[in-house]
Design a protein around this nucleic acid. Sequence first.
DNA 1: TGATTCTACGGTCTC
DNA 2: CGTAGAATCA
Length: 783
Amino acid sequence: MDFLEGLNPQQAEAVRHRDGPLLILAGAGSGKTRVITHRIAHLICSQGVAPWSILAVTFTNKAAQEMRERVLKLLEGRLFSDGPTVCTFHSFCVRLLRRFGGPLAALRPGFSTSFAIYDDDDQMALIKAIYRDLGIDDKALSSRAVLAMISRAKCAKQGPEEWKAKASDPASKKIAEIYDQYEARLRAANALDFDDLLLESVRLLQHDQDLRNSWNERLTHLMIDEYQDTNANQYELMRLLAGKQGNVCVVGDEDQSIYSWRGADIRNILDFQKDFPNATVIRLEQNYRSTKSILAAASGVVANNTNRLGKKLWTAGAEGDPVVIYEAVDSDAEAFFIADMVEKLIHDDSRNRIAILYRTNFQSRAIEEALRRHGRKYKVVGGVSFYQRAEIKDLLCYLRLVVDPADNLALLRIINTPARGIGKTTVETLEQIALAHKISLWAAIQQALEQQELGPRARAALTAFRDLIVELRQASHQKRVDELLETIYERTGYKLMLEQDHTEEGETREANVAELLRAASEAADQGESAVEFLDHAALVSDADQVDETAQVSLLTMHNAKGLEFPIVFVAGMEEGLFPHKRSLDSPAMLEEERRLCYVAMTRAQKQLFLTWARSRRKFGGSPPEPSIPSRFLREVPPHTARKLGGVSSSAEIDLLGERFEVRHTVRKNLYTGKTYNSVENVANFFKERNIPVNLRPPDAGQARPQPQPPPPAEAKQPAAAPAEAKGPKKKSKLSQGAEVTHPNYGRGSIVRVEGEGPDAKVTVLFPGYGLKKLIAKYAGLAD
DNA sequence: TGATTCTACGGTCTC
DNA sequence: CGTAGAATCA
């Protein structure tokens, strides 16, 4: 098979490149996955490189799996006992440490290859425990912030000692103390956090020359995807693994670097040519994904950044529809617009896959609600992930404890779940014993029982708990993971606890456990041990659960990295939200926000909507806060975009009503409620009934030449007074075409009146809210 | 000790 | 609005 077939010249050059460092600057949608997979196949089949000497590192497990499948497909017919390794940095490190990590004990006292992995929940629990013991108040010193600082220190390979040395003010001394404790407890529990996985792998390879040599001999070709988002430890790891041969091929796009806050260093890609002076550089600039409009819009935005290597993306594709910029009155109206448009687009073509992207997770709620009104199914990526659910974590903590009794955090989590009479005081006693003798909590239990320091009740409870764990421990030697988990589920009383909970919540929790058991049995079928299963669970990411067949997906822009969708909405394009307020005073962070915007926009293949709301409420009851459009909207070149909504929001109804015919889809789903909340439904409502639509805005409606310009945006705000001195105001208080103000919906125009007097039913169009049918005497309308 | 209610508080992005 | 931790009661 010819692996160069169908590639453009630059892609082919990258695939053909055999030895020496290679930097591939791959613009969005330029087919880099194709290049990587073809290069792997080409190296193996045409250049005689042994499959096992190739390592490709991707950003997510999902990307790794996809890449593996694609390579396998290319290699069809050729079987290899030990194929190329494709995985993420983190999973590579876990495997490395589990198999070859023994010598690390010399550098890290207490380390053994059966270490536990602490995820961010565990890390937080650990910090909280330290706060308790040191008597620190979370309000005085945010634990989240401290955890972030510790993580950053680790990325920069700075231990507690270094931190302590340069700490001058009391606050950073305190942090040094927490950091110190944090490290000590991780070691005592033989646990590694995510940063440690990378850090300790680096230290291991630096320390153990034999190990390094053997890897250098084995790995002749190294490839790293999403190189712009690697951090210092990953960089170090790459250098150690690449060895002297330096056959390292990195693929990335400096315009898509969006993870500096978690330690990614954009300089890694900007300086690659300095680090490897003999590097070949190939630019992939042909985009195969998006229309000309979308590409031009996105390029126009990112062109405002200064820190770039620079490339010019182009496409042979169609011009396509202009990007739509939609201005909504408030966040609910924004959500309604999106939901309605989703209906229309799916009605137009049921194969349309749609993504709704946002900066922060809380934005999903309003959009979810709007979608639900249409009965539209959607998939949210992220949020509370499966493995974070309480019942799942509990059972996995039992498993962790069975695998490694020193795992204090796991023990603390489940020692009294389900409740078995081991209360706070008992646990505190255990903690004191553990602290005094520098032993694990598990060991402290044994000791407490021997020394008879406890009351009879606690004693009995503790004995039962110990026997339970010992029993499970013995079972673990003979059973598969799934059987073991099942035993845990039953013997710990967890099953009973859930069965007795007859609420809906209890039932979903049971279903979740069933799902976990199913996953475990799948893992066991593939020969995974309990430890491997736990590793797997610890390293799944939100992005791994993206379902690409889902019709409507909701996800953060960060999670959308590497994905593509025919239609994309980017919601919440407002200053302070996107770009996020925490980046406003730093030019570097602003540039990262802009890159994030570029990433979001370039996910779209055919059509792109950017929406923003003039006011947004942070949570339920709080008053809406006014907002101004994101600077990124201004940066979209005007000729690539079309504006909808805003001041002319009722004019746009005509526009949409004419252009789109949605009625079937919408009717089916929507005509159940009393309100008709959306732009298209408004038009629809009238079409259905053949009622003449008078939706022109009152101002523009007076077609007479008007001296003054259209009112500024503020004039449309609820509080604003209606335009005075306009014709038959008094008499037509409740007549068609008149304007009224509603306490909740603000200003609107009457489109229909049924009946008279206080009992009259009035149908009013509120820009941004759509049609509302109101009873005059209850509605509190004012003119 | 355990279960329930109450209150205060808060919100980037994530392997 | 949702949650975590405190306060309270059985």
